[in-house]
Design a binder for these strands. Structure first.
Lengths: 147, 147
DNA sequence: AAACTACTTTACGTTTACGTAAACTTTATC
DNA sequence: GATAAAGTTTACGTAAACGTAAAGTAGTTT
């Protein structure tokens, strides 16, 4: 059980820091399926979870269409005929491969950032040296002070 | 040293599986800066590296604008005044935070895929049971036949 | 020389994911 | 009961990242 069972559009907007426009758009694209009281939307905690997934998907570079596909597929899967289940399993495999690729990309990026940072620090050190040469005053104060 | 110093547009297109249109677009957006012989483009190995970075950026959900920003910043950084260097260091920190977020997202996604897969397999097992009950005929033939 | 191939520029078209404005209804508050 | 606050629909606008002709050039092969 979640804390709450239903949410208004602005509650969700605030919680996840998106505009209500976006949320309505997601509904329009059938990624969310709020019910109505009168004409105001009422979101279930299932919708809330889905919104969370949508946003994470976006951060991971997935389009709304891709995310919707996954949602639909999962719904079909739950209705549980064998073909759907097997299809879902293979799709999960594909997604896993995608995640592996992303992990590689991230690792690469981290390595390159390491060397980039190192170069920055070297360049800074060079600049410090030059400064010292230009202003050859207080020589050894800092070295002894650190640790 | 790389194998080659220069590349034609179609060589790069083939190697990285993008259209020449995309490459020209990246040049138009000033992410690549090929030189010319007559009017045909000649890409350096630096351009090649940049193209690789562009594509990885895309896989990681970065826009071309973001990637361009990084390129420009790095170029400025190389010209090496202190302010730029410090700015670059803080930007690197931010990017690292972004990567952490992405790693979290991936880890979450993996966990959810684990449970999704488990559910699929359970459901399949259920179906197998039902099948057996519906057709309780040739009971032990297969078991002995296999292997 | 004709044809083919690879490359070029120019430019309009398309999809995605919303932003933004206009005009209206419903609910809460003074 | 007026006014504000939050919600709604409708609809046009926009930025990003190319796709897709159209029409021309430059070098190469037959």
């Amino acid at each position: 059980m979640d804390i709450k069972q239903t949410y208004s559009i602005s509650e969700l907007a605030k919680e996840f820091d998106v505009t209500t426009r976006s949320i309505r758009f997601y509904e329009d694209q059938e990624l969310l399926r709020p019910t109505r009281r009168g004409q105001t939307r009422i979101f279930s905690s299932k919708d809330r979870v889905r919104l969370k997934l949508i946003l994470r998907g976006k951060r991971m570079g997935f389009s709304l269409a891709e995310t919707k596909e996954l949602f639909d597929l999962w719904d079909e899967t739950l209705s549980g005929n064998e073909k759907q289940l097997l299809k879902m399993l293979t799709i999960l495999e594909n997604k896993r491969a995608q995640l592996e690729q992303q992990k590689n990309d991230i690792a690469q990026a981290e390595m390159e950032m390491d060397t980039a940072e190192a170069r920055c620090r070297e360049a800074l050190a060079e600049l410090q040296k030059k400064k010292k040469q230009q202003a050859p005053a207080n020589e050894e104060a800092r070295q002894t002070a650190e640790h």
